[in-house]
Design a protein around this nucleic acid. Structure first.
Length: 875
RNA sequence: GCGGACGUGGCGGAACGGUAGACGCAAGGGACUUAAAAUCCCUUGGGAGCAAUCCCGUGUGGGUUCGAUUCCCACCGUCCGCACCA
C-alpha cells in the first residue's frame, strides 16, 4: 500500500483556516452545557514565541480539546499582558513608541500562536494596554479605595536603580529586581498600596481549600504570608535612663517562655525610642545613620555582622522590678515587623547568641533538652531551640515550653500597668502591603488628582479612562509622564483649583490580577465585569503556567479576587480552582573552540556507538557539548517556533513537548526527539490510511460476533481509550503518549498479520479502532487528526467530535494470568479463571513445577493470594 | 541556617505496597535498495550458562511487611524556595 508522506505545512494551514472560518472555538456564555474554564498564563508580547510558550499552550490546548470532546462548554481565551518595561526600553533604544512596538509584537505573536493550532476563542482577545481594559482597572482602583483597600503611605520601598522604579517585596528576588537583576536600594517614598495584609489570615487559611494546587506552591505561599503567633509585651523603662520621660517599650515575641533568659533588648535603628536617644547622643546618631546608609540591600545585609549600640536606657523585667535590661539599637531589627523591638534570649536564639557573645552579655539557659542534666547544661556558641523543660525560670521551672508560654501570657494579660494589660496575644504576618506605584510611562495610570487643598482625589468615574498621552519623549531617564508639559496639570474635581495628576502608573502585576475575570465577558463597557458571566465561569477550572509565579502573580490574583468580591465585581474569593505549574524547556549548550556559544542550528551531532560528539555544521570543527540549561539568548541555546512549525509542523512540536518528560518537570529539547515525533506523525498517517482502505463504511451495522483478530484489536483500542482518558484527567500527558504509541503499534501489527481480505467483523473493528485512535491523539495533534478523520470519510470535524465511548466489558478478561512469587521473587505464572476462588488458585499454584521444586516436598508455610494481582508462596 | 522536592538502564522516563525498566530516544544486527533516504523486523540493566534456568540489581545503611522503587528512620548527593520575621 503506498501512501504519500503527510505534508504538515499544507495540512496545518488548511485546517487552521477551516477552524477560523467556521468559528469552531467561539464560546457562548448562554451555552447550556456544564462549563469548563481552562487558561494558560497570558504572555508578555515580547515579539517572539519560544518553545516554553509552546509547551504551556499545548498543555492547555490538550485539556481544552479533551474537555470539549467530553461534553463541556469550554472557555479557552488568550490575551496580552501588554504593559511593561521592555516596551519603554525599546522606545529608548529604537525610537519606537511603546504602543507601536507592543502592537507590532502582538500581531507577530498572534500569528505564531495561530500556527500552533490552538483551540482558542480569539473573539475574547484582550490586551491590558487597551484603554477599554485599563479603564475598568481604574474604576476598580477607585472602588477598592472607597472600600478601604487602597492606602497612600510613606514607607521604605525597594528602588530598582536600573528600571528607575519602585518594586514590591515579592518582586525582589535575592535582593535584586526580578526583571532587571539590579541590586535593589532602599528609599523612603510616598506610594500607593493595595492592602493585601487585610486578607492575610484569609489568604493563609484558604490555601487549605486549594486542593488542586501543587503542594509546593501552597507551601511557598504559606511561607510568604508567614504567620506567627506570639505576645506583645510592654516593658517599663527605668525613668532615670530615658531621654524624654518615655515610660515603656513594646516588644513582640514568640518565645515568651524564655523571658527569664533575657539578657538585652534591641531596637530597630528606625524605632522612635532609638531616635529620641540619638537626639541626645551624637555617637548613637552616627551609628543609626550608618545603619540606614547600608539600607536594605540584601547583599549587604547577608554579609553584615550583627552590630549594636548601647543606648544606656534600661528596661525593667515584667516579672522583676529589680531586673534591669540594657537596650541596644541593633542593625538586624526590622522596623516593619512586630513593633520594631525585641528582647534577646541568647541561650535559645542563634541570632541573639551571636549578638550577646559579641558584646559580652552572657546567657542563661532556660530550656533544658530531654536527657540533659540541668545543672551541667550550658550554652556556648550554639543556641538550643528544641523542646525541653523550663529551668532557671522561677515559677515556670519544670513546665514544657507550651505550658510556660501559656503561663506567661496568662499572668501578663492579667497584670496591668497604667490601666492597660502588660501583654496581649498578637498575630504577626511577614506579608507586607502591595506597593503598586511605578515611576514609569507604559502602565495603567493611577486615576488620582492631587490637590493642595483637598489632598488626593479620585478622578470622577465619568472621566475614566485616564489615558496615557501619546506625545511623550524617551530621550532622558525618568518618567515621561512627570515631565509632560500639559498632561498632569488639571483642575481639582472637588474644589476646581489647579491641581496635579498622579504621574505614577500601576504595577503591571495589577493588570494580570483580574484578566481571567475580564475574559468571561470582555465586551461589557459599563463595568469591569458582567456579574452573571463572572459568576458562571469562575473559578478557572485549570490554570497553567510557570512556577516562577508561585507567589507573585498567584498571590496578587487571590488578593484581587477578594477585593473584587468586597466591591461587588465578583462573587467568589479564590480565582483558580486547579493550578498546574509546568516545567521549563531546556537544551544542551554548545561552545566553539574560541569559547563562544554556538546555536543548535549550526551544530551537527555525530554518534559513533555510545560516543556522541558535536561538530560545526559549516566547518566541521569540533564543538564542545556543554550542560543542559534553560533556553536563553545569552547561551544561544534557544529553538524558535518558526524553525519547528515551518518544517516538521506544529503537531510534531506539540507531540514532542508532551512526550517523555512529566509536564511538571523540565523537558530537554533534542533534535533526535523532535525527529522521533515527526516519524510518529508519518507513522500514524500511514496507519490510518491503511486502516481506512479496509475499514467498513461508517454506517455499517455492528457484527454480532467478533473473531479473535477483530476482538483483540477492539480490546487494544478500548484499553488505550481507558488509559488515555484517565491520564489526560491527571495531566500525565507523557503517559498518554506512551499509551497511544503502544496502541498504534498493536494496530499496526494487527493489520500486518491480516491474511487475505479481511472479513466484515474485522473491517468494522478496524473502523472503530481507527476512529478511537484519531480521537485519542486529536488533543495533542489536532491537524493530523482532522486530516485522518477526513480520510476515514467523516464530513464533520474531529474538533467537534465527542470523545469515544468506552465499552468496559471489553477490558474484562475471562482468565487472568497471575505472577507467582516464591518468597517474594517471581518464579512462574499461573492462568486461572477470572472468578476462580482462592483455594482453586492455591491448588493450581502448588501444582506448578517451579513451586514443587522450591518447596522440595515440604508443605508451604503460607500462600498469599491477592485476587487479580499476585500469588506469593512462602516456603 | 530553615523549609521542601527529587535520586530507577547509555538517556527521558513507567510501575493502586504486588511480574522493576511500559513507551520513546540512542545504539547494535538484519530485510528492502545499484546506493542512500524512507520503511519494516530483531536485540538491548549487569553477570553465569549450549540451554532450561539461576544470581545481582531502583543513591547508601537499617526497619516494617508474605512481598518495598513505593511506607518509616538515618546518612550521602542534586535541585528549588525563604533567609536577621523576634
Amino acid at each position: 500500500m503506498t501512501t504519500e508522506r503527510y505534508n504538515a505545512r499544507d495540512s496545518e494551514t488548511r485546517w487552521q483556516k477551516i477552524w477560523d472560518d467556521r468559528a469552531v472555538f467561539a464560546t457562548r456564555n448562554d451555552d447550556p452545557r456544564p462549563k469548563y474554564y481552562v487558561l494558560e498564563m497570558f504572555p508578555y508580547p515580547s515579539g517572539k514565541l519560544h518553545v516554553g510558550h509552546v509547551r504551556n499552550y499545548t498543555i492547555g490546548d490538550v485539556v481544552a480539546r479533551y474537555k470539549r470532546a467530553t461534553g463541556f462548554n469550554v472557555l479557552h481565551p488568550m490575551g496580552w499582558d501588554a504593559f511593561g518595561l521592555p516596551a519603554e526600553n525599546a522606545a529608548i533604544e529604537r525610537k519606537v513608541h511603546p504602543k507601536t512596538w507592543t502592537a507590532g509584537n502582538i500581531a507577530i505573536m498572534k500569528s505564531q500562536l495561530k500556527l500552533m493550532g490552538l483551540s482558542i476563542d480569539w473573539d475574547r482577545e484582550i490586551a491590558t494596554c487597551d484603554p477599554n481594559y485599563y479603564k475598568h482597572q481604574q474604576k476598580m482602583f477607585l472602588d477598592f479605595w472607597r472600600a478601604g483597600l487602597v492606602e497612600r503611605k510613606n514607607s521604605k520601598v525597594n528602588w530598582d536603580p536600573v528600571e528607575q522604579t519602585v518594586l514590591a517585596n515579592e518582586q525582589v528576588i535575592e535582593g535584586r529586581g526580578w526583571r532587571s537583576g539590579a541590586v535593589v536600594e532602599s528609599r523612603e517614598l510616598t506610594q500607593w498600596f493595595f492592602k493585601i495584609t487585610a486578607f492575610a489570615q484569609d489568604l493563609l487559611d484558604s490555601i487549605d481549600r486549594l486542593e488542586r494546587w501543587p503542594d509546593k506552591v501552597r507551601l511557598m505561599q504559606r511561607n510568604w504570608i508567614g504567620r506567627s503567633e506570639g505576645l506583645l509585651i510592654r516593658f517599663a523603662l527605668d525613668p532615670a535612663t530615658t531621654p524624654n520621660r518615655e515610660s515603656e517599650l513594646d516588644i513582640f515575641t514568640t518565645r515568651h517562655d524564655t523571658l527569664f533568659g533575657a539578657k538585652f533588648m534591641a531596637l530597630s535603628p528606625d524605632h522612635p525610642l532609638a531616635n529620641a536617644a540619638a537626639a541626645k547622643d551624637p555617637a548613637l546618631a552616627k551609628f543609626i545613620a550608618e545603619c540606614k546608609r547600608h539600607g536594605t540591600a540584601q547583599e549587604i545585609i547577608d554579609k553584615a555582622e550583627k552590630l549594636g549600640f548601647d543606648t544606656a536606657i534600661k528596661a525593667i523585667h515584667p516579672f522583676d522590678p529589680a531586673w534591669k535590661l540594657p537596650i541596644y539599637v541593633a542593625n538586624f531589627v526590622l522596623m516593619d515587623y512586630g513593633s520594631g523591638a525585641l528582647f534577646g534570649c541568647p541561650a535559645h536564639d542563634a541570632r541573639d547568641l551571636e549578638f550577646a557573645n559579641k558584646y559580652g552579655l552572657g546567657n542563661v539557659p532556660v530550656v533544658c533538652p530531654p536527657g540533659q542534666d540541668p545543672k551541667t547544661f550550658v550554652i556556648t556558641d550554639t543556641a538550643y531551640d528544641g523542646e525541653g523543660r523550663m529551668i532557671n525560670s522561677r515559677f515556670l521551672d519544670g513546665m514544657t515550653i507550651a505550658e510556660a508560654k501559656e503561663e506567661v501570657a496568662h499572668r501578663l494579660e492579667k497584670e496591668s500597668a497604667g490601666n492597660r494589660p502588660v501583654a496581649q496575644r498578637q498575630i504577626n504576618f511577614r506579608l507586607r502591603d502591595w506597593g503598586i506605584s511605578r515611576q514609569r510611562y507604559w502602565g495603567c495610570p493611577i486615576p488620582v488628582i492631587h490637590c493642595e487643598t483637598c489632598g488626593p482625589v479620585g478622578v470622577p468615574e465619568a472621566e475614566l479612562p485616564v489615558t496615557l498621552p501619546e506625545d511623550v519623549a524617551f530621550d532622558r531617564p525618568g518618567n515621561p509622564l512627570d515631565r509632560h508639559p500639559t498632561w498632569k496639570h488639571v483642575a481639582c474635581p472637588k474644589c476646581g483649583k489647579p491641581a496635579r495628576r498622579e504621574t505614577d502608573t500601576m504595577d503591571t502585576f495589577v493588570d494580570s490580577s483580574w484578566y481571567f475575570a475580564r475574559f468571561t465577558d470582555p465586551w461589557i463597557s459599563i463595568a469591569p465585569t458582567d456579574r452573571a458571566a463572572v459568576d458562571a465561569w469562575l473559578p478557572v477550572d485549570q490554570y497553567i503556567g510557570g512556577i516562577e509565579h508561585a507567589v507573585l502573580h498567584l498571590l496578587y490574583s487571590r488578593f484581587f479576587t477578594r477585593a473584587m468580591q468586597a466591591t461587588g465585581h465578583a462573587g467568589l474569593d479564590e480565582p483558580f480552582a486547579g493550578l498546574f505549574t509546568q516545567g521549563m524547556v531546556v537544551h544542551e549548550t554548545y561552545r566553539a573552540a574560541d569559547g563562544n556559544y554556538v546555536e543548535p542550528a549550526e551544530v551537527r551531532i555525530e554518534s559513533q556507538g555510545e560516543a556522541r560528539r558535536a561538530v560545526s555544521a559549516a566547518t566541521g570543527e569540533p564543538i564542545e557539548i556543554g550542560p543542559i540549561e534553560k533556553m536563553s539568548k545569552s547561551k544561544r541555546n534557544t529553538v524558535g517556533l518558526d524553525e519547528i512549525a515551518g518544517t516538521a509542523g506544529a503537531d510534531t512540536a506539540r507531540w514532542f513537548m508532551l512526550s517523555d518528560s512529566p509536564p511538571d518537570r523540565d523537558v530537554i529539547w533534542t533534535e533526535e526527539g523532535a525527529q522521533g515525533a515527526l516519524r510518529f506523525v508519518q507513522h500514524l498517517w500511514r496507519l490510518i490510511s491503511d486502516a481506512a482502505s479496509i475499514a467498513a463504511p461508517a454506517d455499517a451495522p455492528r457484527p454480532a460476533d467478533f473473531r479473535p483478530a477483530a476482538l483483540a484489536l477492539r480490546k487494544a483500542a478500548h484499553r488505550a481509550l481507558a488509559r488515555v482518558s484517565e491520564d489526560i484527567e491527571r495531566l500525565r500527558f507523557h503517559v498518554c503518549v506512551a499509551h497511544i504509541y503502544k496502541f498504534a503499534n498493536a494496530f499496526q501489527t494487527s493489520l500486518a498479520e491480516l491474511e487475505g481480505e479481511p472479513m466484515a467483523d474485522y473491517r468494522w473493528a478496524a473502523r472503530e479502532a481507527a476512529g478511537i485512535l484519531v480521537r485519542l491523539f486529536h488533543p495533542m495533534m489536532p491537524h493530523l487528526a482532522e486530516e485522518c478523520w477526513a480520510v476515514l470519510g467523516y464530513a464533520d470535524l474531529v474538533a467537534k467530535a465527542p470523545w469515544p465511548t468506552l465499552e468496559a466489558d471489553l477490558l474484562q478478561e475471562n482468565t487472568v494470568t497471575l505472577p507467582v512469587q516464591i518468597n517474594g521473587k517471581k518464579r512462574a505464572d499461573v492462568t486461572v479463571g477470572r472468578d476462580a476462588k482462592n483455594p482453586e488458585i492455591e491448588a493450581a499454584v502448588l501444582a506448578l513445577d517451579a513451586v514443587k521444586r522450591a518447596l522440595d516436598g515440604k508443605p508451604p508455610k503460607k500462600v498469599i493470594v491477592v485476587p487479580h494481582r499476585i500469588v506469593n508462596v512462602v516456603a
